[in-house]
């Protein structure tokens, strides 16, 4: 599984829940959305080793 967030990427070779993934890379679920293979997924779902995962920031402002 390839995970991309803010021009960084991570590889995972085992299934992992979205919440676990976010905890591992130290990101608050409240501040992002997770897109798996182009589809938005909720935090309790499990990501599979062949998934392409993109994490999208939602905080904006100035």
């Amino acid at each position: 599984m390839n995970v991309v967030y803010r021009e960084q990427s991570w590889q995972f070779d085992k299934p992992v829940k979205v919440t676990t993934l976010l905890r591992r890379i130290d990101v608050l679920p409240e501040s992002v959305l997770v897109v798996r293979n182009g589809q938005l997924v909720a935090e309790d779902q499990t990501l599979e080793p062949d998934d392409e995962v993109k994490i999208v920031d939602v905080i904006s402002g100035g």
Binding site: L28, S31, V56, I59, G61, G62
Partner: peptide, 20 residues
């Protein structure tokens, strides 16, 4: 998706992170 370059370090973003 990019943030306004002037917003980097803005207090409003810090407040949003605290609230989150």
């Amino acid at each position: 998706h990019a943030e306004c370059p002037h917003a980097v370090g803005a207090s409003s973003i810090a407040h949003k992170q605290t609230l989150n």
